[in-house]
């Protein structure tokens, strides 16, 4: 016990010195007047302090572990869960939208291909039609040309026949006038034919 009070004095004096250097005039007499150094070193107060500390801390521990901590951790876990769920949902939605986009793109590609095909078919059809028309027109023109040529040929041969008879008559007349001989039509015709063939 004596040792304990000695400690108390040492500590009290220690504090006293610390305070005394700061406030030499005001505090030193006051400190001298107090019987014990530090009230904290009054051992008679220890049982009550420890008792009430144990009581209040035990109550606090119970309240914390039974009420406060479960409540806070519940909220924190709920939030964590909610965030995880939301992230999950978001990623699911993203996947879905990705899928939809892929489908859309596929449909777009298909539609584009189809349009291309239709365009190609239309162009082909148009080309064949044009070719048909052209062929038809060509055929018409050809028949017309042929007809015209036949007509021209006919006209020429008619003309030639006329020329032959005219030439025969002229030749007969010319022979009669020149030599007074009547040449038969057959001879004349033969002679004209020979002359025309020789000329030709």
């Amino acid at each position: 016990m004596t040792r304990i009070t000695a400690w108390a004095k040492v500590l009290g004096v220690g504090v006293g010195i610390g305070v005394a250097t700061a406030t030499p005039v005001l505090v030193t007499p006051a400190l001298a007047s107090s019987e014990v150094g530090l009230p904290q070193l009054d051992f008679s107060t220890y049982p009550t302090q420890v008792f009430w500390l144990v009581v209040s801390f035990a109550i606090l521990y119970l309240l914390m572990s039974q009420v406060a901590i479960p409540r806070i951790s519940e909220v924190l876990e709920g939030r964590q869960e909610r965030i995880a769920n939301d992230l999950d949902k978001a990623s699911k939605l993203r996947d879905e939208s990705e899928q939809v986009r892929a489908e859309y793109e596929k449909a777009l590609t298909a539609a584009r291909g189809e349009a291309h095909e239709q365009l190609r078919q239309a162009a082909e059809k148009m080309a064949t039609e044009t070719a048909d028309e052209e062929a038809k027109a060509g055929a018409t023109v050809a028949t017309k040309v042929n007809e015209a040529e036949a007509r021209i040929e006919q006209a020429r041969s008619e003309a030639l026949t006329n020329v032959r008879s005219v030439a025969g008559e002229v030749a007969g007349d010319a022979v009669r006038k020149l030599i007074g001989v009547d040449v038969s039509e057959g001879d004349l015709d033969k002679a004209v034919g020979q002359a025309m063939e020789g000329q030709a």
Partner: peptide, 26 residues
């Protein structure tokens, strides 16, 4: 001597304040 001192009172108040703060806030 287990007297309820002002230190005990403030310990009890500390317990009450801490508990009320944590439970009422949540």
């Amino acid at each position: 001597d287990l007297s309820f001192t002002q230190s005990s009172l403030w310990m009890v108040i500390a317990v009450a304040v801490a508990t009320v703060f944590l439970t009422a806030a949540m």
